[in-house]
């Protein structure tokens, strides 16, 4: 049995379907954006107002704010540090001082002899 394809129905279902998907998701975009404007965390610091000589003391300018968000690189660094801290993969220190003071006046570290080229001496 061969069924006749009703292309009209198929077109209606496809067009209506994709349109409804877009409409619902566009509506969600508006709603999310609206909620975002109300609820988004605002990390703001007050800008230092420039000293203006002519501004009268009665008319105080409203303090200007600038939005401060942590940069991506800083976020990555903090995340890595937290990850290392919680997973305990950082280098463990022995807390033992390995550099010790010496009583010798001259040592290979401060002797200029070691910093000079010694010519070959034929004996």
């Amino acid at each position: 049995m061969t069924l006749a394809i009703n292309w009209g129905n198929a077109v209606i279902i496809a067009v209506l379907g994709i349109s409804v998907v877009f409409c619902i998701l566009v509506l969600l975009i508006f709603v999310i954006s609206m909620f975002g404007k109300i609820m988004a965390p605002k990390i703001k610091v007050e800008k230092k107002a420039p000293v203006a000589a002519n501004v009268s003391t009665n008319e105080k300018a409203a303090p200007e704010f600038e939005d401060v968000h942590i940069a991506g690189i800083e976020t990555a660094a903090i995340a890595t540090a937290i990850h290392l801290y919680f997973n305990d993969v950082h280098d463990s220190e022995s807390y033992v001082m390995t550099i010790k003071s010496t009583q010798r006046r001259y040592s290979p570290w401060n002797s200029k002899i070691y910093g000079l080229n010694n010519n070959l001496v034929r004996k």
Binding site: F35, G36, M39, A40, P41, I43, H69, I70, A71, G72, T75
Partner: peptide, 12 residues
């Protein structure tokens, strides 16, 4: 960079 999202947003 994406903006940070508040906990309230995530709950609502």
């Amino acid at each position: 960079q994406l903006r940070s999202v508040s906990k309230t947003e995530k709950i609502v």
